[in-house]
């Protein structure tokens, strides 16, 4: 929570500069192609049979990769102020912890 920049002037300039160097359209398309390939891989797992211990970590890894790739490029977190990332990640982390505990109390992991 104590994340605001202490020196407004500096960060102001920084944010300003970064604002102007958005990636090119071509770069965005590259990102989309990569996302499409990962999605294809994800869907591919549906047609291949493998044990859950392999499949689920693989799926999770690809999901997390896609998630943060979109956040980094399309939502500009890569270039934008780290403060935005902090807000978003605090929501994500809090949700993961709190609901993770809830699922644990429900013994979700045992069954699944």
């Amino acid at each position: 929570m104590s994340t605001a920049t202490e020196s407004p002037v500096e960060s102001h300039e920084a944010a300003h500069e970064e604002g102007h160097d958005h990636p090119s359209d071509r770069r965005y398309i590259q990102v989309a192609v990569i996302l499409a390939i990962v999605t294809a891989l994800e869907v591919g797992t549906y047609f291949v049979h493998m044990p859950g211990e392999v499949l689920i970590p693989m799926l999770m890894a690809m999901m997390i990769y896609k998630f943060f790739y979109v956040a980094a490029w399309f939502m500009h977190l890569r270039f934008d102020s780290p403060l935005f990332t902090k807000f978003f990640v605090s929501g994500l982390v809090l949700a993961t912890i709190v609901y993770g505990i809830t699922l644990t109390v429900f013994e979700f992991w045992h069954k699944g």
């Binding site: 605001a4 920049t5 407004p8 960060s11 102001h12 300039e13 944010a15 102020s81 403060l83």
Partner: peptide, 10 residues
Amino acid sequence: SHGHGTGTGL
């Protein structure tokens, strides 16, 4: 709206 003059610059 472009963050001029805000505390965080955002």
